[in-house]
Design a protein around this nucleic acid. Sequence first.
DNA 1: CAAATAGTGTCTTTAAGACAGTATAAC
DNA 2: GTTATACTGTCTTAAAGACACTATTTG
Lengths: 252, 252
Amino acid sequence: MEQTEAEFLASYDPGKYPRPSVTADIVLFTVGPHGHLMVLLIRRGGHPFKDRWALPGGFVSAGKESVDQAAARELAEETGIQNAYLKQLYTFSDPGRDPRTHVISVAYTALIPYSRLKFAARDDAADAKLFRAIVNDGLLYLNHNDRIMFRGIDLGFDHNDIILTAIKRLQGRISYEPDAFELLEDKGRFTLYELQQIFEAIQDTELDTSNFRKMVRRNYVETGFIAETGERGKRNGYRPAALFCCTGQKGN
Amino acid sequence: MEQTEAEFLASYDPGKYPRPSVTADIVLFTVGPHGHLMVLLIRRGGHPFKDRWALPGGFVSAGKESVDQAAARELAEETGIQNAYLKQLYTFSDPGRDPRTHVISVAYTALIPYSRLKFAARDDAADAKLFRAIVNDGLLYLNHNDRIMFRGIDLGFDHNDIILTAIKRLQGRISYEPDAFELLEDKGRFTLYELQQIFEAIQDTELDTSNFRKMVRRNYVETGFIAETGERGKRNGYRPAALFCCTGQKGN
DNA sequence: CAAATAGTGTCTTTAAGACAGTATAAC
DNA sequence: GTTATACTGTCTTAAAGACACTATTTG
């Protein structure tokens, strides 16, 4: 006898085959006051990789949330950050990447301005710190206030690979996605030099001011993505810079 | 008493929390003899979405394989295609995207030359067919030999979204990844016009021959990614074209 | 005025596009 | 020669980079 779809679903047994676990892991980037690209790491309190540094993240609640929602929830639970700018990065699924069982990790990139993360810059935040991420010769190095320094391969799980993938993707996206603006302290009130510092941190290069500003005019001012506010920034004994704001237009 | 990692792992119970299922789904693209971008669809034999067209794919065997391996295995099982050029696309995880239970789909793009898929161009291949993929006004339409035609939203699951995402990504990647060369009938023996047709199919535009060839020289010949073989193609009553081959160099 | 940062102008190179043209095979 | 496809040259525009330059503020 032919089954209808409703009958099939009523009799469906979801427990027949073993399933992997699924986690959402978050590579949270910020640009620190020295113009460095930084990543948030959590010191693991329990096994596996107890006392090692690793990315924030956690298990997806099956049937209750998408992985996107799990990423936002876990980031809020572990760091208090709400409404983060989160983008899916890549899914890591080697059966041996977690020693407990087969855990598939859907990795996300989060971009948060530094001032929302100041707690993690202090040394008394024992379990969640910002580390400068340095890529040299294809290898990742992590550095907190020149006091804690280690190699990416000393992170828990395959988080070295995840962070390297995230940095490459961030660098690739910067020319066609509005990522850089998410790292500004105030999207409604910023100078072009502040924006340039974020581009420099992400691309890990120095940029020519004149050429950078030409690019900004072409890609963002002329498209209406940002606009001059008419105001000028703080006076520090020299010429104050013009302030711009994001308008919410599409841009590029 | 403090547990060691080994003790922790020995006592770890993987069944404590409900887990989602994970599938690998494959968007297999080819360029047909009329220069159209085509996608392989399978007619579903069982519930859910029985008798509807959907992407090939299947469940990941937990603990036994990565999702990459599952994608390659499922593609081989359902179509006989071995050693496909497979790239991870995106992970789709809405808890309601599969009516059975929470099924997270890691989607892949496969690029295969048309001659390896001729079986799916014939009408007697009842359960696996190639469809021309047409994007119009952001909407997807599928078309097999002008005989079977339907909208992407009539596909099973969220496969309309997956295919649209795959097409966008393919178009975005073409200028910096060697994807186009994977669609050539013979990477060791092709004319520049054959290559141009693949670019045109992916970008859904007509390209200027002169400008296209200038780009090929710059990006692929001068970098050593492809080279002239010295031979010439078939004579059809007119000037035969020079044959090129991929060299295995990095390119771009 | 000097100091310090903000901001511009110009020249060159490179890539992209439009478009007219020449070359070589079979017949 | 014609026909059909293969292939090139030139002009224009736009983007990217190097680098010298001017402008505006405080003190």
